[in-house]
Amino acid sequence: MTSKWIKGMAAGSLLLSSALHGAVDFTKDLLPILEERCLKCHGHVKESGKVVTKGDLDITKPESVKEFLKAGHPEDSTFYTLVISDDEDDYMPPKGDRLTDAQKKVISDWIKQGASFEGYSKKAKGETLLEKLAKGTSAPSKAAIAHFEQMGALVLPLAQNSPLLQLNFKPVGSKSNPDMTKRIVELKGNIVWLNLSKANINDASLVPVTELKKLTRLHLDNTGITDAGLQSVASLTNLEYLNLYNTAVTDAGIAKLASLKSLKKLFLWQSKVTEAGVKSLQAKLPNTYIHFMTPKMKAPVKKEEKKKAPKKK
């Protein structure tokens, strides 16, 4: 019930804003409606990387949307007429509530005003980085997977029917060795998460990792990695998460990471970096969360207890 209310209110405010500002903006005004009510069938990217485009419409692609409208003429645009249609076999969305009058008006106004896509960025809100990386990816090599499994590593798809893989060397345990990453290249199109935490590896082990351009998460914590190894990491431009805690990396090493524009989180606790080094990297990567301090706690509660105890006596 509440969600319907909110939907109604949101549409109301959209209408208000477009009325106030005149022009209806595709990204700001129209896309939220389309994403909520149309995306599921027209442009949704499945875990497998496949895009659902019922009736050949993909609302995330302007060229696809244009096929269904005549700029300036909502009444001649199926993009609008199907939304207002009373024909049970035709109207859209086919299930759930009809669009509200306010929402219908946003579509009609947008077409009337020339159906401009100005300022629209290609990436639809619904598409995550992983969905983007899954697109067009072929199934991983079974031989390579068997090779790593035999070693004791875990090779798992991120989800059912996903071609993307996570490779976790942690279970290899004491048998891990610097050469175990050698054949990683054979899975370069598929690996997005790589866990080398606590593994017996060195900087040379990371050279094959350079090839894993789709990598978004990389655990190198508690390993013998040094600044030299970070050279290999610096080219992984899709990297969002990098864990270097308890390694010997220094300020000079992390300076190389300034190229990782997608990096969201970087962990450097118990490494050799200094506050100055972190500051200088932070300036280049303003949106990255960098953690390098030992966690601080308020004064221990234990002491308070001890102070109070004698008073009672």
């Binding site: 864990n243 962990f267 953690h291 966690p295």
Partner: peptide
């Protein structure tokens, strides 16, 4: 104290 420390500790280790 411990539940706060748990969150902070997990956070520092990524």
């Amino acid at each position: 104290r411990p539940m706060t420390a748990l969150i902070k500790d997990l956070k520092s280790r990524g």
